[in-house]
Design a protein around this nucleic acid. Structure first.
Lengths: 227, 227
DNA sequence: AGTAAGTGTTACTTGAGGTAACGGTTACTT
DNA sequence: AAGTAACCGTTACCTCAAGTAACACTTACT
């Protein structure tokens, strides 16, 4: 009943899922094209890779930047798929940091061209919110900032640093990752270890300055420190 | 005598200085155009700003990326002019870190559009070595890495982390700076302080793990620690 | 006087992003 | 059964910014 009442024409609904599937298909094609022809592919290349002509592409993406945005989001998924578990895992804090860092680096390692495409292949004219990379970094940094802020407040410390620190940490890992990708001069495991060491020391120092002795081999007591 | 011997035609020499001056002039025009029209100026805009037509520009720059490269180098000068003193200054280590960070942020604050233009307005097709930003970051990171490495070796610690740590620190400051530039939600002084705190703690932690107690209020003893 | 560097112009070519206009297919609506 | 709303797809075009060709004038060295 509710189906024919006034439901605005089922012909419109028929494609609901299809469109998304098609978009996904083109996103995959773009990724394939990037892998094959390097990070500076054009719309023609992508269309060719998808076995289709340009206008078809433009039926599904308003714009080059729209397509690239979608690719970026796909990359975000890849990233989150691997970082998620590490982020949620429980365990010794020092080890967790290393896992998170290593998860990030593993994605970079496995998809170098895609990574370069997404991170470096941006536009000058990106209208503020169309920058996936910035969005991603914000996403991660924001999550981090909340965690940091909660802890700091729980310890009665100034929590004003939470946000800048979060962004600093994100930038740190990213830049070290960029450097590593260009001149792979050490193993991923080594790099993860070095970075985790640095981060751990930074966090430990902050805690120390509040009189808290944290054990890197133990899980972080979740906000029960001042109860 | 040596002048007319075979000296390959003084007509060639006559312009030696002139060309450089002209390039500088166009670089300034580009910066002005960027400041006026935002970071996505085109060659026509630049030419217009310089009161000249496009081909003139192309006599002095092979390429758009050549011009932008020169702009980047100019920006590097601005940056180094302010960071240099802070880098060379002597004094309490914690304070020096803050000065260096603050010097960086002050440049960002004073030239937001130029900064965005240089940092974000790069090309996908930059042929490896034409990326000023990457070059700059490398420059700074390499210098940092040397300092870190020397200290670590002097302390008989593993110096393998020097390079990744240097890049990590650079990325940290840069990313925090980017974030701050977008949503200026705290004063520059505050941000500098927070970042310096984080960096200090990281360094202090590394030293502590080697059994060295560093005083943030004192200058770093320059490599005489193990003599 | 000749010429090698520079000054500058207008008008063009090129290439990639993006669009117009056309025709065909499917399955819902009337 | 006819109509139509969504899609499929094509070729041929438009547009705009980067980059070039061709031409003419100036200056100071040979």
């Amino acid at each position: 009943m509710a189906r024919t009442v006034k439901g605005p024409d089922a012909r419109r609904e028929r494609w609901k899922g299809h469109r998304e599937q098609r978009r996904a298909e083109f996103v995959e094609a773009t990724i394939a094209a990037v892998a094959r022809k390097g990070p500076d592919v054009g719309m023609d290349d992508v269309a060719a890779e998808a076995g289709v002509s340009k206008p078809v592409l433009y039926r599904h993406f308003t714009d080059k930047s729209d397509l690239y945005l979608a690719v970026g989001q796909r990359a975000t998924e890849l990233l989150m798929d691997r970082m998620g578990p590490a982020l949620l895992a429980d365990g010794p804090i020092r080890g967790r940091i290393e896992q998170i860092v290593d998860a990030y680096l593993s994605v970079v390692e496995d998809n170098p061209n895609l990574y370069r495409f997404v991170v470096k292949g941006s536009f000058v004219d990106r209208p503020v919110e169309k920058d996936v990379v910035a969005e991603d970094k914000n996403l991660i940094a924001t999550a981090l900032a909340r965690i940091l802020g909660d802890y700091l407040r729980a310890l009665d410390m100034d929590s004003g640093g939470a946000e800048p620190w979060a962004h600093a940490l994100v930038g740190m890992v990213q830049n070290a990752g960029d450097w590593w990708l260009d001149r792979q001069t050490m193993s991923r495991a080594n790099l993860s270890d070095y970075l985790a060491t640095l981060i751990w020391h930074a966090i430990d120092g902050l805690l120390r300055s509040a009189g808290v002795e944290a054990d890197p081999e133990k899980p972080l007591t979740p906000l029960r420190l001042v109860d």
